[in-house]
Write a protein that binds this DNA or RNA. Structure first.
Lengths: 333, 333
DNA sequence: GTTTGTCATGGAACCGTTTCCGAATCCCAT
DNA sequence: ATGGGATTCGGAAACGGTTCCATGACAAAC
């Protein structure tokens, strides 16, 4: 038997299709008795409204697109789970678009915007260039997380420079005077900028404490544990070596930890290691790090999106929400 | 200006809407010259077809739903990234449904099936009861991963019992005679069964080697590091204690590692720890473990789904694909 | 020249909703 | 009883595609 449509329901309940639609959408303009008759018919026929038809006719997709870099790095996943958690209690579906390259970003954007496949977009970390921005439909709600290059839109961010300063000051407060830095090489595929800012904070804190910035102790590497491990090994093989590292991403910090172990150095006695992000695995490894509230950032973004969609507009369309950072003291400093 | 429709394109190209549609869908029934005229019009108007209309009319959503337990455990994420990777090169979108409870599973299923929101479903780990199964539309392609309770459908699995045996034999081969077990308590929210099977393999290997199963060394705990840590601490505080643990999930193994550290025991000299899954973090912690190919399982599932959808059917609709397992030797045994 | 078949094309009908307008009904004050 | 505003309701039109059938053009076969 064909799956029932709104017309079948209408016939069965002895009402018009308009009335069924009104019941479906919770309009108040229906007599209580009629509503119940319709609901009964819906139940009897095991009817549920066709999503595509609803989209076509109503213009809404009940879908929120999440655009993220291809997630091999755990922070995206944690943010995603925050988003998921909130959307779960809403009527919106979550569609995932993971991006591998700048070209793919443009394709996806064109696709998403052109086909109207989502009512709103949440963008994680990815930087947009002018071309990308132009592709955007100005009416399409968009919220950026971990990215303040998308100025026109609301965004959830942290103060990376502050975080870098915080971390460095913490190391200094623990008596370190010779501090190295390892971060992700900034022109990576996704065009992240956090590392640059964290490094800036690092240098500022150094300067404020009257300490020298020692270029030989600082390295930018690609975003994987192995690169960090090797970089750290090289730095630690020098005659004069740092007593501590500020590593701009936890995953890289794991590599540094591995390097220390390779060389038989005790952590934190011989080298201290300070991470950044507080991804889940950081807890397993007892990594002292700067926590940014990853899950919370996802929750906030989706909550905002939901508000935006239900209100039809936002108070401040270009509001910037800054999430707090905090040191998590564990065992590596 | 209104976003252009297929009719605008038709007018501009001086053809009928049918022809535009044929061009859009790559029909061969169009003269080359006409095709080019249409393509030019599409480009000039910056047209892209409306997804909802296409769905409604064509009956396909170009969407694949992934149904997973709410992912706090990393293995889901790794599977998901395998799925993502494959779908990325296809014309299908990935919609994520994460499930927190049995009741929610039924809601989601009803919703998904009723509203025809996806052309196919990939189900990760979640067990279906008869009621759930009844909810399924028999025409809806479905592939199960890490779950062989959904007999009617193709599924990607591993042999958990075999894996348990493998792990245990490895410990025995390394001279261990007193071996404990820690796993997830089997009646957890999601109704996983892997632990039970892994434990079964564990006991078989013990028996085969003529070793006693020592109930006081075995514990089922809830799926978080802390519980495992505490359980391991308790077991290790006994007068007579195991020299090794087989832990049925890596994340729990991390807890056991923490417990050993708490008690000042060296790993692997005082206690050896063997995990299961080989999630990413296992590498960071040098955990010796049984690798199941998580990413590959996702890739396979989505590749199968794509084949199914494009062929309209599958060779063997209830095929079971068994992925191999292997020991990853690291530093904890 | 006529017939037959193939290919290319136009466009009506259809998919299943929402929305809007007009009509019917109800309720109440006069 | 009557008028009139509020409430409730029915169904046509619209959303933007796909599909299918009818038609015309053209080539090949007789």
């Amino acid at each position: 038997m064909r799956t029932p449509t709104i017309r079948d329901v209408a016939k069965r309940a002895g009402v018009g299709i308009g009335t069924v639609s009104r019941v479906l959408n919770g309009s108040t303009q229906v007599r209580e008795e009629t509503r119940e008759r319709v609901l009964a018919a819906i139940r009897e026929l095991n009817f549920s409204p066709n999503a595509a038809a609803r989209q076509l006719s109503g213009g809404r997709t009940f879908t929120i697109g999440v655009v993220t870099p291809f997630f091999t790095y755990p922070s995206f996943v944690e943010r995603l789970s925050g988003i998921q958690e909130v959307l779960d209690h809403s009527e919106y579906d979550l569609v995932l678009y993971s991006i591998r390259s700048q070209a793919q970003l443009q394709d996806r954007l064109r696709f998403l915007v052109g086909q109207r496949r989502a009512d709103g977009l949440i963008v994680l970390s990815l930087r947009f260039d002018d071309e990308d921005l132009r592709l955007l439909n100005p009416d399409l709600p968009l919220i950026a997380v971990d990215n303040d290059t998308i100025q026109r839109y609301p965004r959830i961010v942290i103060d990376n420079e502050d975080g870098g300063r915080l971390a460095t000051e913490y190391l200094i407060a623990h008596g370190h005077r010779a501090i190295g830095f390892i971060g992700e090489v900034t022109d990576s595929a996704f065009g992240f900028t956090p590392t640059r800012h964290r490094m800036h904070g690092f240098r500022e804190a150094l300067a404020a404490a009257g300490l020298a910035y020692h270029a030989a102790w600082c390295r930018l590497v690609s975003l994987d544990q192995e690169s960090a491990r090797q970089a750290a090994r090289e730095i630690l093989s020098q005659n004069e070596r740092p007593t501590a590292f500020f590593v701009a991403m936890d995953m890289l910090a794991f590599g540094v930890l591995a390097a220390a172990e390779d060389m038989g150095l005790r952590v934190p006695d011989d080298v201290a290691v300070m991470g950044f992000d507080d991804i889940q695995a950081a807890r397993y490894l007892h990594l002292t790090t700067v926590r940014q509230h990853l899950i919370e950032s996802g929750r906030l973004a989706s909550q905002h999106m939901l508000d935006w969609l239900s209100a039809g507009h936002l108070g401040q369309e270009n509001q910037q929400i800054k999430l707090p950072l905090e040191i998590v003291e564990r065992a590596t400093v």
